[in-house]
Design a protein around this nucleic acid. Structure first.
Lengths: 240, 240
DNA sequence: TAGGATACTGAACATGCGTTCACCCTCGCC
DNA sequence: GGCGAGGGTGAACGCATGTTCAGTATCCTA
């Protein structure tokens, strides 16, 4: 599993080792000594190069942000979160360390992760705006929220990498699975899931002020979409 | 921030403290002493009740699974991941600990998290099947994958709690934001995002064997959907 | 009322942690 | 030839960790 480690700077080798271990096991579950061992150096050298474990983490964050957002030399290229993610997912094995680390950045709520997410949302919003203006996408009742949702949906393969693979009978997220996701996703984004506008209409009506009209088409079976239901469910207290 | 801790069993109080700290800071960043302090007991008592930190984690996992999947007494109720999540999200402040812990379970790839996710996928698949049979939902070219995607999309508010809140100008995920997500999500699931079937058609054609036909409607602007693009992007090697 | 189980504690244990320090090598430069 | 700067190391430091242990209080039961 250890990478053969090409002839990089020792500093870069340490950074890559940290990235892999932080990504695989998390920050606090990773010791400086483990990083040093993986990089083939002593723990003292890690401190010599980075000063502290926290500074090493910051350098990893910055490195990933550079990889994703694009570094200075190649400002022109349209490299952002979604395109980088797509590129990395195309070769999951090669980029597993970066993918794992990136997923942790986004879920851990660090500043760097927030920057990446905000950038993704902004780009998604601009893209949708342009497509709507060109008549290729529908406009939404809440464009900002729609951009956030679409952006967040796009992160799903990153965040649920292991779950997606296992739930579909393969170990981890294979390139075949990534390819297999394309068509259903586009079907969803082209036709939606519902045949009729009943659920949407009921929700619109409910949110417009009338909390209850016919109660027929909405609460039929835990709501059509499994995670959106306009009626407030009763809260339940904790247990013993 | 500390909860006033109602009159629970000491054992339950310790478990709740562990749940909150594990959820907020992660397993290895949480010390047994911190858990003990939060529960108002000594560290030794934590060991007395649970044997080890790892066993305490297992008990937390089991407790959340019980909360989500439903415990023995109430087998009949249709309590699953999505409905429990919805219920918890309706009172984010009250259930923050459970929500954070649950999010970690699902992303950390533990067995318990996998069980929850698989259960969610199965229920989503059944729901879609039933709705399709009733003529209320469209059938997909890949029903299993569609179920996985819809299930995963539903987990987004859980996994990206902090990001969603911040990206929309509020601190964390407020009930108002949860409500505000309803309509755009239903719009997406009712009408889709694309006005035409161009992108879907192009992808279908590309995946059917012809890798390139007109190249016009697909690669216009980084692809309509920001995260699905059938053409394989060129891989790039690592850096210095 | 004795006694054994149970709840609970403070102090200690061994270990691993992040970090520091003194020291060695090996260059490039004057 | 000398020499300073930087890459690199092993050993150690102080500390926090998970866990253990002897001991105390409290309760239930016989």
């Amino acid at each position: 599993m250890r990478s053969p480690s090409p002839d990089l700077t020792t500093r870069a080798r340490i950074r890559d080792a940290a990235l892999a271990l932080f990504g695989a096991n998390g920050y606090s579950a990773t010791s400086v000594r483990a990083i040093a061992e993986r990089a083939g150096v002593s723990a003292a050298l890690v401190m010599h190069h980075f000063g502290s474990k926290e500074a090493l983490r910051a350098e990893c964050d910055a490195h990933i942000v550079d990889e994703v957002i694009g570094r200075k030399e190649q400002l022109a290229t349209d490299s952002d979160l979604s395109s980088t993610m797509r590129r990395w997912l195309a070769d999951v094995d090669l980029y597993r360390a970066s993918l794992d680390y990136l997923a942790r950045m986004i879920t851990d709520g660090t500043d760097a992760g927030a920057r990446l997410f905000d950038d993704l949302v902004d780009r998604t919003a601009s893209m949708i705006d342009a497509e709507v203006a060109a008549g290729r996408m529908r406009s939404s009742s809440d464009p900002r929220m729609t951009a956030v949702i679409v952006a967040a949906h796009g992160l799903v393969p990153l965040l649920l990498e292991s779950q997606l693979g296992r739930a579909l009978g393969e170990p981890g997220l294979t390139p075949a699975l990534v390819a297999r996701m394309t068509l259903p996703t586009l079907e969803l984004y082209t036709h939606g899931l519902y045949q009729t506008t009943d659920v949407l209409d009921a929700a619109t009506a409910a949110l417009a002020g009338r909390p209850d009209t016919t109660r027929g088409p909405r609460s039929d079976k835990g709501a059509g979409d499994p995670n959106q239901d306009p009626d407030p469910p009763p809260a339940r207290a904790s247990d013993n």
